[in-house]
Each structure stands twice: as structure tokens, then as C-alpha cells.
Nucleic acid binder design. Structure first.
Lengths: 241, 241
DNA sequence: CGCCTCATTGACCTAGTTCAATTTGGGTGG
DNA sequence: CCACCCAAATTGAACTAGGTCAATGAGGCG
């Protein structure tokens, strides 16, 4: 199943699995599917029997307020599990939206159980993957709660560049960012109008441009400094043990 | 080990473990400790060999911006694991702070591995516990990103009341909330001054009072309505399967 | 009594919102 | 090729939630 390659490639950075283990993992995926842009991949509250690995395309976890406002709680790039947490949780309290045309592979929950029962290292691996998402959630809480304006956008761009690099989706310091300014606003807790002004500010400062659904970082050093960006929370380093 | 009782009691609401399984779980805890209020229980970046279950007292996960501002990413009550995620992650990108005097029990990581290897249901259970935290993170993202002023505080109070009820820490609709207004501000993304005004607003509306480190909910219905509160994301219901 | 932390209040300021209009550019039908 | 459409980006102007600065209370404790 080639569709899991980006994920496998990522975890091999941090963990050392044997070729047999990797083969077991790969063999557990099934059922390749496609979704068109703007379609809901997973509906909030549905009981889930499989998890979804993003092979191609971009997706987001979307939550809504009772009064209808929208918050994007996670932004997913190829190689990310968008809903691995549905294995322990069974139902999700948010939906998953395709931001572009997407191709996914499924990992049936029964296969996860089989993997874990066969080898406890898989539990730690998959659990780890969901905990990186949670770590990013906490960083976003800090970002939305405590950083303002341009810093906030800068931090999101730094993070997304780092994550894109790992799966070779960045070209230099440019990477796909297929969201409208309104989507970005729902990610960062602004209004679309103000989002537009903040984007203009980063552009005017010569730090970053957003063009054609692509982000171009002009001055990475300065952008990271503005954001106070420290990638530790992404857990990209290899483990010691 | 009686110190894990609040946690056990909570998971028995949702999962059906056999008495032997419960005994295995209980036997895996060790090493009761105490921390005085305001002390750091877990330091950011330290390699961890055990996880910490809060037996008595209140704690928070705290993150800092490069420029020094503080965000509380999680608020923990007795019966919560404050850092179960250190099992898969090994090091944390935040510290854990005792908000009051705390008594904790430790669950050594080697024991977690032993539990999982013995019985894969434990993997799903412990993983589940960390995923509830992550679900709360996502709700907080929505709360901080999209709810304003009084709604935001109202939502936090509704959540904390629900969670307190489960471990029998609420008396009627009053429950301990041992944080200063400055702590609350760092939780909800306000300044202390504005936090104070919002608290006053809820008091004046007759919805809730904060007195003597205790929250008193005067009108739960109205508070939940104001917050648009739906407890689904807390995963308190029993599973179907 | 004096100190210290926390809560409260007032006055002023600004980041971000709101409403509304205009522009831009790709896509489509004729 | 042109006319038209539509989603998205951009801009302006007025408004407000929330921040900042600063002073005052108020309780707990050595």
C-alpha cells in the first residue's frame, strides 16, 4: 500500500522499526478513496470503524459554536492521520473537511487492535501520532490565546513550513497552503477582513507572501523570530532510546 | 493503591473492565507524593519515566511564549492524569504546575508497557484518557478562538462543573475553582483586568459567582445556554459496545 | 502594624470587528 | 472572443471588545 508512504517515512525519522514491522503496518491499510474539495470526509458524531490517513490533499478538523461560528482546530497535510483518535474515542466531536481534492487510505480499527495485540510497540507509535496532534493543539491554544496579529499568523506559517518540509512538500521555503483567507481566519481566530490586513502586513514587512494557494516565506529567520517559533512541540527529532 | 480510585471510578462509567483487570491497573501505580501549591510538578523538556495521576488537589498545564506571556492549556482536577501523554511523547513541551497542594500517584512507564503487552484493552483505555484531553483542547480552541467575553468564561465554568460532578467534587452546582483571576485570564486568553470585569458581568447577571476559590453556579440552564455548552466532547457517556 | 497578594475600579487607548463597497481573476456560456 | 458571473481579495470608515496604566480596597498573615 504505497499510500501510507509519507506517514511511514515520517515515523522512521523518529522510531526504528524493523522491516517486518513496517510491512505489518503497511499491510494494515486498505480501501483507498477520494473526496472532492469542500466535501466532509468525516461527519461529527458518527461511530467510526476505521481511521483515515491523508495520502494526497489537504484537510481540516472543524468545530462549530452553537451560534454558528467556525473554528479550524487542526490543519492536515499529506502523511497525517486526520482521525486516528477515532480509534479510542469511537465518535468525534468535530467533522473533517477536505480543503482540496483528497486521496486517503483507511486503517480499519480492527486492524489497529490486531497490530497492538501482536506488538505493543505499535500502540506506542500510533498513540504517539495522536499525541503530536494534541501537542499542536496546545501550541495553538498559546498562539490564539496569547499571540496577536502578525505574530499569530507568522507562527502558523512557521509550523506549516516545518511540517511540509518533513514530507517533502516544501520547495525551498515555499509550500502549498490551499486555504482561503476566510479559512485562515477561522484557524487563527480573526475575522476575514482583519486576516487580510495581517497578511498584508507580513507581505509589506517582506516576511511572507500568500499567492495562488501557496505560501512563500521570504525571510524565515525574521519570521521565526517574530513568531517566537520553537519546533520542539512538533516532535520531529529522532528519539534517543 | 486507593489513590487511583477517582480515575478508576470514572473509567468504569464508560468501560466495562473485569475485577481482575481493575486490580492489574490499580497494582501498576506506585510512589505517592505531595507537592505544595505553586510548585512545578513536571518541568518542560525533562525525559519522563512515569506518568502522574492527580489524587488530590488541582493542577494546570502551562505554556509560555518566547516573550513571556503564559497560557494555561489544561486545568486538572482530582482523578485526572496530568501527563499520561509523556508515555508516548517522552518529553513534554509544557510544564505542569500545582495550583493547590497536591497529592499524586505515579504510573511508571514500564508498567504501562507491561499492562499493554498483557492486555491490549489497557492501551485503548489509557489512549482514550489522553484523547479526552485532546478533545478538550479542541473545544478550548473553539472557546478562545470564537467565543467572546462572558460566553467564554461561561463555557469554562460549565465544563469544569461537569467534570467536577463526575468525581463528586461538586456540591449541588458549586465546585472548587482554586485559581486566581490572573490564572483564569491565562486560561481564557484575557488580561486580568478584563477577566475581573467579565466575572463581574456573570455575577451581575445572576449566572455565577466566584468566591473563596469556589465557583457557585446560580443558574445552570442560563449559563449553559449563554455558553452554547454541549458536553459531548467530554466523552462522559458509557460506550455502546 | 505593616506587608503582600489578589480583587476592583476608572480613564484612556488600540487591536480587531463590522458593515459596506470595490476590485480581481478564473470560469462559463454564447 | 466577449459578456457575464462568482468566489475571493482588498480597502475604507466607524465602532467596540478588550488591553493598558494606574490607583485603591480588602483580606490574610507574620
Amino acid at each position: 500500500m504505497q499510500h501510507a508512504d509519507k506517514y511511514i517515512q515520517r515515523i522512521e525519522r523518529r522510531f526504528s522499526f524493523t522491516p517486518e514491522e513496517i510491512a505489518d503496518l503497511k499491510a494494515s491499510f486498505s480501501d483507498v478513496r477520494s473526496y472532492p474539495a469542500r466535501e466532509t470526509i468525516v461527519e461529527e458524531g458518527e461511530p467510526m470503524a476505521y481511521s483515515t490517513l491523508l495520502h494526497e490533499g489537504y484537510a481540516a478538523r472543524v468545530k462549530h459554536t452553537a451560534s454558528g461560528s467556525r473554528q479550524i482546530a487542526a490543519f492536515h497535510i499529506p502523511g497525517d492521520f486526520v482521525d486516528l483518535h477515532s480509534y479510542p474515542l469511537e465518535c468525534l466531536a468535530h467533522s473533517i473537511l477536505a480543503m482540496t481534492d483528497c486521496t486517503i487510505v483507511r486503517l480499519p480499527h480492527e486492524n489497529i487492535t490486531r497490530l497492538i495485540e501482536k506488538n505493543a510497540r505499535f500502540a506506542r507509535l500510533l498513540w504517539f501520532s495522536t499525541m503530536v496532534d494534541a501537542s499542536i493543539h496546545r501550541e495553538w491554544l498559546l498562539n490564539i490565546g496569547r499571540r496577536k496579529g502578525a505574530e499569530r499568523l507568522a507562527h502558523f506559517l512557521c509550523e506549516t513550513l516545518c511540517r511540509s518540509e518533513i514530507v517533502r512538500l516544501a520547495e525551498g521555503t515555499s509550500f502549498p497552503l490551499p486555504m482561503t483567507q476566510a479559512d485562515l481566519a477561522d484557524t487563527l481566530g480573526f475575522t476575514p477582513v482583519h486576516m487580510n490586513r495581517i497578511i498584508g502586513k507580513l507581505r509589506d514587512k517582506g516576511l511572507a507572501r500568500l499567492e495562488n494557494r501557496t505560501a512563500h516565506i521570504n525571510n524565515r529567520k525574521a519570521l521565526e523570530e517574530l513568531a517566537g517559533f520553537d519546533p520542539g512541540y512538533l516532535y520531529l527529532q529522532a528519539r534517543t532510546g
